Computed example of a mutant assay.
Amino acid sequence: MTLTATRFDWVRQLVHRESAIVLAPGKEYLVEARLLPLARKMGLADVDQLVDAVRSRPRPDDTRQIVEALTTNETSWFRDGDPFTALTSTVLPALQSARGPAERLQIWSAACSSGQEAYTIAMLLEDAMPNAATRVSITATDISREMVERTRAGRFSQLEVNRGLPAPMLVRHFQRAGSEWEVSPTLRRMVATRECNLAAPLPRMGPFDVVYLRNVLIYFDLPTKQAILRRVRELMRPDGWLFLGAAETTLGVDDSWSRVVIGRTSAYRPLKGA
């Protein structure tokens, strides 16, 4: 490792200021591993040189690339499966019962990474609802411009489709595009993409019937978690449903949500009057 304590502290403060992500002491190796490819891309020998260059001549594009390199983009199809089972078994029937036949369902896949979650939802609803492409709108957002562009492209490598995508769904919803797989035009019409920093004021979106905000809150401190949950609630319908990661909860963080157990998972719903 070449990253000094002073330079790590500068990176830590930059990332927290721009994204509210907390890089605790002990994450020096992670920073080194994530930023070294960026340093090499810029023709620099190591991460110390990268940090010195950006500190001496700060440019928005360079700082953005540093922050994006340090955001976690781990994802797969049907990740932790139960929240998707809950969508089709419980949430979708409840929403269809509560909504008029002409009302469009709006779903938000927040911190969508390269798009597997958003397209997983699209596939499930396409299989569960007639004319889903005209009845469902899925908004996929991420802080990373690269991830948003990848989601918009809807193209995945063989290795990526091997991570959790059932073969029948691959055949039904994808087509070959050279060495990659491309989502069908129907799925693409269901998914809209945009950049979004959850730790900053959110853009005008929604109102959402369902929000998937999974494996995101674990990277923030308590005040930021509270602020994000408040902002998300403001973009939801009063009877909407929120899915968090298996290690995440609103309990002890924001008491304006009620927890609903659905099979082997839980969803959270805004409390009336909160």
Rank of each mutant, 00 (worst) to 15 (best):
W77T: 03
G26V: 12
R104Q: 14
A69E: 02
A53I: 05
R99Y: 09
A118T: 04
G81S: 14
R55Q: 11
G115F: 07
T75W: 07
G100I: 03
V67W: 02
G26P: 04
D62Q: 09
D80K: 10
A45F: 09
P37Q: 08
A118V: 07
L14W: 13
A20F: 08
D61P: 00
L95R: 06
A122D: 00
P37S: 12
F84N: 02
F84E: 03
S114Y: 03
G26D: 08
T120W: 01
I121C: 03
L50Q: 03
S76P: 00
T88Q: 07
L14C: 14
R34V: 08
S89A: 09
Q65V: 01
Q106L: 07
A122V: 08
L30K: 10
K27M: 12
G43V: 14
L38A: 10
S76G: 04
T72S: 07
K27D: 06
R59V: 08
T120N: 04
D46C: 13
I107C: 05
E117D: 13
P101F: 14
L38S: 05
A20T: 12
L23W: 05
D82L: 06
G26A: 14
L14A: 13
L44A: 06
L23R: 06
Q96D: 05
I21T: 10
V67G: 01
L87M: 03
A45C: 11
I21G: 02
I66P: 00
E28P: 01
T75R: 10
A86T: 06
Q65A: 14
D80T: 09
Q49H: 13
E32L: 07
F84W: 08
S76I: 02
T72P: 00
L44F: 09
P93G: 09
T63W: 04
I121T: 01
V51R: 04
R40S: 12
Q106G: 01
E18V: 13
I66H: 03
P60E: 12
R59Q: 06
V67F: 05
V31A: 08
I21N: 07
I66G: 02
D82N: 08
G26I: 08
K41G: 12
N73M: 02
T63A: 03
E74P: 02
G115I: 05
H16F: 15
